[in-house]
Amino acid sequence: MSSNTVLEVENLSVDITVPAGTLHAVTDLSLTVDKGETLCIVGESGCGKSITSLAIMNLLPGKATKTANKLSLEGTDLLSISEKEFANLRGDRIGMIFQDPMTSLNPVFRIGDQLEEVYIEHGKGGRKEARERAEFLLEKVGIVAPRERLSQYPHQLSGGLRQRMMIAMTLMCDPTLIIADEPTTALDVTMQAQTLNLLRSLQKEFNAGLILITHDLGVVARMADRVMVMYAGRAVETGTAVEVFDQPNHPYTQGLINCIPVPGRNEPGSKLGSIRGIVPALVGDLDGCMFRNRCDFVSDDCRGGDIELKEISPGRAYRCLLNPEESARNLTAESAA
C-alpha cells in the first residue's frame, strides 16, 4: 500500500439473517481508496453497494454480520476497535452523505445546530469555532447568506440546498474519507450536475478519498477515477474509468454500457438496450457465476465452482471465465448487432 492510501478493504463479506436463511449481501469484496481519489461503486439495486458502505461505517443493521481480512483507515485497524471508538471516527475521519436530503436532516433542529453538533461532539472546538467553521463551509458549498441559512430549519430549504448542507456537514471535521451513497438520485437533473461538480471540487480541495455509490453510469463517467462494478454482492469488474468504459470485459458491464442510449448509435424509435432476466436471490449456498442466467456467453463451466476475480493488470480485474480477447470480440459483435 502507498502512503496515500486512505481506505483498504480486503475480502469483506456481509451476511444477513433472513427468515429463509442466510442472505449473502456482499461476498469477498476488496477495494482501496487513495487520498483525493474517487472510486465509483456502480451496480443495480440490491447488488450490495449500500451494504458495503454501511459495513465500512460499522452501521450495519443488527441482523447483518460482517467478516473481512482487513479493514483499515489510514493505518487504523477498523476490525479491532470497539463500536465506541468507531463512533469517534464516524463524522470525524469518515463522513457520509446519504441519498435523500429531504429526510436525512432532522426536521426539528436548526441546520446550524446539526452542523455544529458534529464539530463539538468530536472535540474540535467550542460553539463559537463550530459556528465559524459552519459558516466557512456553507460558503464553500456555494450558499449565499450562510448566517441566515444556519438558523433555518430543514423544511425551509429546497432539496438541492439540503444536499449542500449535508456535504458541508460531512466536511465539518475535515474527513479523510467521504462516502456518498447515491447523493444525487433524489435531486432533479440540473441540481445533480451542480452537486456532483461541487462534491468533486471540494473532495480535491480537502484531499479526501471519495467512495461514490451510484447506479448511474453517467455519474460514473463524470466523477470516477476508478470504477468497481458490483453484481449480486461481488465485484465483477474493476479498473480506471477509461479502461472500464473503453474496454469492458465482463458481460454484465458490457450490458450496462450497452443500455445507455447514445445519439447516433440508437436510431430514433428503436428499442433501447436491456439485460434480460432478473437478479438472482442471494439466499443459501451460492455457486458459480451469479450472472450466468442473464449472460449471452454462458457455458457449462459457469454453473459451478468458484469464479475468481482475474487481475489483468494492477487494479484492473474482472470476474468471468472468458479471456479478454473473447470478451472484446463479444463486445464488437454486440454493438454491431
Binding site: A87, S104, N106, F109, E117, V118, E121
Partner: peptide
C-alpha cells in the same frame, strides 16, 4: 428507522444523544 437517525449515527454522535435528543424530540 428514519434517515435522519442514520445520519446522526453516521455523524458519530453518542448513542444516548441520538436516542434522547434526535429521536425522542420527534
Amino acid at each position: 428507522g428514519s434517515d435522519f437517525i442514520r445520519t446522526a449515527r453516521a455523524k458519530g454522535l453518542n448513542p444516548m444523544r441520538v436516542l434522547f435528543k434526535h429521536a425522542l424530540r420527534n
